[in-house]
């Protein structure tokens, strides 16, 4: 897993509540048995028109946001299905961080397994970032996981945040969970012996 330390990039606004995993990637694109290649289907139903051409109204099709690495959105981002294809599609597109006032549990957890930072900020901070990004398309923000701070270039908006230590440590170091768990092989075996 690619470590996430600090990221500087364009922020694209998706000013909606409850962005669900079917919006992020519809089930019809989950048939692949690979982990990669889902990026072209990210937000598929909104990104493309009937004839398959780009929908010019969709945020990621606008030149200022095309290269976005960060999304900012409303509460309960990622609700719905457990499909890890949602973070895979985001990551494959180039998004490494989603900023929102709250996330659905499974999506939140899935992000950390893929080097993506789901960043929970207070609703008013999210609103300020959203407003700034909408007023200044293409503006860049820095998400610094080491210092646990989000800021824009002119430091007009500076927000400190906290990610729990364990997840932060794994993300900073790009650590694979399974390897860590297998260090507890003895405890697992003892549990199994005890339970029969």
């Amino acid at each position: 897993m690619e470590p996430f330390v600090s990221l500087n990039g364009v922020v694209a606004p998706i000013d909606q509540v409850n962005v669900d995993t079917d919006m992020i990637i519809p089930a019809v694109y989950l048939k692949s048995i690979e982990r990669t290649g889902f990026g072209p289907h990210l937000f598929d139903r909104y990104r493309y028109l009937e004839d398959g051409s780009e929908n010019p109204d969709f945020v990621l099709n606008q030149d200022a946001y095309r290269s976005a690495q960060i999304l900012v959105s409303g509460p309960n981002f990622g609700c719905g299905s457990s499909r890890e294809h949602a973070p895979w599609a985001l990551e494959d597109y180039g998004i490494r961080c989603v900023i929102a006032p709250s996330f659905a549990d499974i999506f939140y957890n899935n992000c950390f397994k893929n080097g993506l930072l789901p960043l929970t900020l207070p609703e008013e901070s999210v609103r300020r970032i959203m407003d700034k990004v909408q007023a200044n398309p293409g503006v860049q923000f820095t998400v610094d996981l080491e210092a646990q701070q989000v800021r824009d270039a002119d430091e007009d908006i500076v927000v400190d945040f906290q990610v729990d230590d364990f997840r932060r440590y794994c993300l900073l170091n790009g650590l694979d969970d399974i390897g860590l768990t297998l260090q507890h092989e003895d405890a697992i075996a003892a549990y199994e012996a005890r339970r029969g």
């Binding site: 957890n109 969970d177 399974i178």
Partner: peptide, 14 residues
């Protein structure tokens, strides 16, 4: 759970 966790459970049963 997500697919990374599916792998985790397959490998570790935890």
């Amino acid at each position: 759970i997500g697919t990374s966790e599916v792998e985790h459970v397959l490998a570790t049963q935890t």
